[in-house]
């Protein structure tokens, strides 16, 4: 679309919009850049009582370590405090959650999208109500039975809980996605002699990947970003990265150690950056899919 006489904004308006946008971008991006930069400094610079410019120049960092940048925070977190263990747990949890949620979600979402009956609608409404439950309220329901049955603290328990909490959202996304795949496709396969499951397997699965990938991204984000469930249901040695950061704050608020938290915060954010970079289009379409179609 070319700009036209009609679309041409007056200079003052364009300037105002531009200035606002610059302001917003600083608001959105600066905290991350600042923390990334600061994670290579010592605490005295990152939290500078004397002058915030120290964080930029790294005066104390240079004095303490002999170089303007230091990897001490990262070393302390990853090696000394064994953050890698948490990283490994996070990988196990997120991968399992994504795979299981998508498996359950595609089957259920496909069924909901192809059912003409009223109960399909009500199941979606129930899912919406479940989606509204704060996870922490559910956690308070888990603890007692999990203690009783000795399920508490293990990764598999957390994984299946996250899968369940994730289901309502996954179902909504995938149902709306499967509704956009024409019914003719599986119906013609069934006329050609497939059972319902064969039709799903041979005709629907090959064309469902765009929607599944988009939904998978959001399942990943939910599992990766979760704090309420992982912090309450995992034992200390099984903690994933996000609750691990919180435990740094609680126990190591001594000098220098807060930089462990800063370094691990940067470490946790980096994969998300990369994710957005590669999947920006899918994330945007996923966010808008439910909304724009109503």
């Amino acid at each position: 679309m070319s700009t036209t006489v009609a679309d041409r904004r007056p200079a003052s308006l364009r300037l105002a919009l531009g200035a606002f946008l610059v302001f917003w971008l600083i608001l959105a991006a600066f905290p991350f850049l600042w923390t990334l930069w600061g994670s290579f400094k010592v605490e005295g610079d990152f939290f500078s009582r004397a002058d915030w410019m120290n964080a930029v120049s790294g005066t104390l960092t240079e004095a303490e370590t002999g170089a303007p940048f230091t990897g001490d925070g990262y070393y302390g977190a990853w090696v000394q405090e064994e953050f890698w263990r948490a990283g490994l747990n996070t990988v196990i949890v997120t991968v399992s959650v994504v795979v299981i949620s998508l498996t359950f979600g595609t089957l259920g979402g496909y069924a909901l999208s192809r059912s003409p009956y009223r109960y399909a609608f009500w199941l979606l409404i129930i899912a919406l109500v479940f989606r509204a439950m704060p996870p922490i309220t559910l956690v308070s329901g888990y603890l007692l039975p999990f203690f009783e049955w000795n399920l508490w603290g293990h990764l598999p328990t957390t994984i299946i809980v996250l899968v369940a909490i994730n289901q309502p959202f996954t179902l909504w996304m995938l149902t709306s996605f499967f509704r956009n795949i024409p019914k003719d496709l599986d119906e013609s396969a069934m006329v050609d002699g497939c059972s319902r499951f064969q039709a799903f397997r041979h005709v629907i699965i090959p064309v469902m990947w765009p929607g599944v990938i988009t939904t998978g991204l959001f399942s990943f984000l939910l599992a990766y970003n979760d704090f309420a469930v992982t912090s309450m249901l995992l034992s200390r040695e099984n903690l994933t990265m996000v609750p691990k950061i919180e435990s740094f704050l609680g126990t190591t608020q001594t000098r220098g150690n807060v930089m462990f938290a800063v370094a691990s915060v940067v470490s946790v954010t980096a994969p998300l950056f990369i994710l957005v970079m590669f999947f920006q289009r899918q994330i945007v379409s996923g966010l808008t899919a439910g909304a724009v179609k109503g």
């Binding site: 917003w24 971008l25 959105a28 991006a29 905290p31 991350f32 600042w34 923390t35 600061g38 990152f46 939290f47 984000l221 990766y224 970003n225 704090f227 996000v242 950061i245 919180e246 704050l249 938290a261 800063v262 915060v265 946790v268 954010t269 998300l272 950056f273 994710l275 957005v276 970079m277 920006q280 994330i283 945007v284």
Partner: peptide
Amino acid sequence: IFFSLLPMIVTPLVGGLILFWM
């Protein structure tokens, strides 16, 4: 759009910490 997405996509606990330290 890329930069605008960051505050939403980042882990809430982490996003909070980043602002809190600032």
